[in-house]
Amino acid sequence: MIRHLSACLLSAAILMLSLSIPALALDPGEMFDNPAQEARARDIGRQLRCLKCRNQSIFDSNAGIAKDLRVVVRERMIEGDSDSEILAYVSERFGDYVLLKPRMAAHTYALWSAPLVLLGLGSFFLIMYLRGRPLTARAQVLSDEDRARAQHLLDGEGSQ
């Protein structure tokens, strides 16, 4: 019960914070001075989803929780974690939902194989189609009489 209540309160706190501060994403206070490090932090940020936004990465979002996650990412970087360790760290706590790039696992094989399967299937059908059809026209030569009739039709008196 108490746990539940405090969870409620926490979510109320986060909600209000994010509603009342119309700040832009990424505030200079949290940024690294070293441009290479900063670029790396952003690359990682682009791969993490802001949990309460619709399809925004934490790098793009101005929600409070996105900022928290950015700070977490930066802390892990200072700790010396590699990119994949950071992503693993975050997804361990928040679930696979935070990964904008789904990790390769049994439930995403179908997703990741989609481009190759689609291209492969398409190419297969294309080749079958091209091979299965006659390369030259069936000898459907028009007789002179037919040609004359066709010319007649095309000259515009045919159907009368």
């Binding site: 682009r46 791969q47 989803r49 399809n55 990465s57 679930g95 696979d96 939902y97 935070v98 990964l99 904008l100 790039k101 789904p102 439930h107 995403t108 179908a110 997703l111 989609a114 689609l118």
Partner: peptide
């Protein structure tokens, strides 16, 4: 199509929530 609908389908099938975003 697959990338857009995959999370929906997966959630309907076994409730797993994943995101498919720009990197994919």
């Amino acid at each position: 199509f697959v990338g857009t609908l995959y999370p929906l389908a997966l959630e309907l099938i076994n409730g797993a929530k994943i995101s498919v975003g720009a990197p994919y």
